[in-house]
Amino acid sequence: MAEQKTVTFIITRQAGPDSAPYKETFNIPYKKNMNVISGLMEIRQNPVTADGKKTSPVQWDMNCLEEVCGACSMVINGTARQSCAALVDQLEQPIRLEPMSTFPVVRDLIVDRERMFDALKQVKAWIPIDGTHDLGPGPRMPEKKRQWAYELSKCMSCGVCLEACPNVNDKSNFIGPAALSQARLFNAHPTGEMNASERLNGLMEDGGIDGCGNSQNCVQVCPKGIPLTTSIAAMNRATNIQAFKNFFGSDNAH
């Protein structure tokens, strides 16, 4: 081995939430089967830019390293995805890393995904089961339905669908596809169903389901393969029916 192969990263960095972004280039030694995160770890060990300037280590977010937690999402060569599942061998060089532009940057590649959790609150994406006394077991869920709902439950709030959505941006208040699909998940649950109208009314609040423009990028980019656009269409139908019930009146409007 005469010469060691290197990998080039061009990283969009930012010192803090209010500072200006800038780019830095790093050349790091290539290792077999490396992913973007192991490249970032290499930079952390030796934070020197391509032109030999010593710099601060690049900050990023990560946790599970197996595409389950959603923490390490970033824009890699223009597309949002998890950096743990982005293999260097499959990427075009130089590898460009940027923070997801939909979210406020905390530092470098770390973003604040709090708006996703606010969205889950808007659509009440949980099942209230607490009472002052033992409420007993809830209704059973058919196994077939459980398997179907499991696909929807894979959402890890990674933010990739929001980043890819042309209608989620600083000019619009759209909460994004993830929460819309979560409302469907919890409305499908036999216990969650008891609060279905609350979630539907949440979807009809400002920034809710009407913000969808059907670009369908979300379903293409979702790393968990969640049928987001089917969820949105299903929730469109459900919110329309709920709106009619609300307006004309119905004993089933709850």
């Binding site: 009314n201 609040e205 400002d206 920034g207 809710g208 009407d210 709106a243 609300n246």
Partner: peptide, 8 residues
């Protein structure tokens, strides 16, 4: 019921 003006 909230107003849901944007939705409508």
């Amino acid at each position: 019921m909230a107003e849901h003006r944007e939705f409508l």
